[in-house]
């Protein structure tokens, strides 16, 4: 069953357009959302979170349209971005104290577990965190309210190889518990390690949305890696 359903999503900017973007994300699977910089990954994710006003199409979570069930849906999903700095001069403790009050499902044990796993200090402010630690802090917030779906915008950007590996292991662990993980990335090796499905976007248009194995069977040449296949496709053969 698709836990996220994006259908014919259209968003028009003067110099860029999302063109009838459609894909689904299944329960308990890890979906990698890949595309080069400016392909439309963040615009799609922002649309899925109702942060931007779309010009067409529909988005539903758990079978409910986002437009009429925003509050209920947001309680059941987690979001993280690697680049934004929330309240840079407030301590993590203060930020979490406020955020947790919005979630009935806040899991104190999970919070402490991930705090320890990520090596975060509650008395530090986001300003004092490295880029990688900021990503972990955002992830901590998303993971601590028992989200059924995690939507992560480039969560592995800025992480060292060890932390990236650790994070991908967390995704695999969450998947075992039925959590769907949808994450955008431009680091193709992340997909090779943990993704079940691939949604590939280029110039605002979905090129492929399918299981990784099917993607490899359809697009990769014999002996070619996922990264090599994508580089070749992005290099000019997409529209061939």
């Amino acid at each position: 069953m698709n836990i996220i359903e994006v259908k014919d999503l259209v968003k028009k900017y003067p110099a860029f357009e999302l063109k009838e973007v459609s894909f689904g994300v299944e329960e308990g699977r890890i979906t990698g959302f890949i595309g080069r910089n400016g392909a439309g990954k963040t615009t799609t994710i922002k649309s899925m979170l109702n942060l931007i006003h779309t010009d067409g199409g529909s988005i539903s979570f758990f079978g409910m349209p986002l437009s009429s069930n925003e509050t209920e849906i947001k309680k059941r999903i987690g979001y993280s971005t690697g680049t934004v700095n929330w309240y840079p001069r407030k301590t993590i403790r203060d930020i979490v104290r406020v955020e947790r009050s919005f979630y009935d499902s806040w899991d104190g044990e999970a919070y402490l577990k991930y705090m320890e796993m990520f090596g975060l200090d509650e008395d530090k402010t986001p300003l004092e965190l490295s880029e990688g630690m900021k990503v972990k802090f955002n992830l901590l917030m998303a993971l601590s309210h028992r989200a059924e779906v995690l939507i992560l915008d480039e969560p592995t950007s800025g992480l060292d190889p060890f932390s990236r590996n650790e994070l991908l292991e967390v995704f695999i662990e969450l998947k075992k518990h039925g959590v769907a993980v949808f994450f955008s990335t431009h680091i193709i090796s992340d997909l090779e390690k943990c993704a079940d499905d691939i949604v590939y976007i280029s110039k605002g248009r979905i090129v492929a949305a399918m299981p990784k194995d099917a993607f490899m069977a359809e697009h990769a040449r014999p002996g070619e890696t996922l990264e090599a296949a994508m580089l070749r496709m992005e290099g000019g053969e997409i529209n061939a």
């Binding site: 979170l49 509050t71 309680k75 934004v84 929330w86 309240y87 955020e99």
Partner: peptide, 16 residues
Amino acid sequence: REANDTVFSALLPIAK
């Protein structure tokens, strides 16, 4: 605004 409060708030499980 400098603390990205608007987006943080819009992501919370409340109506915009």
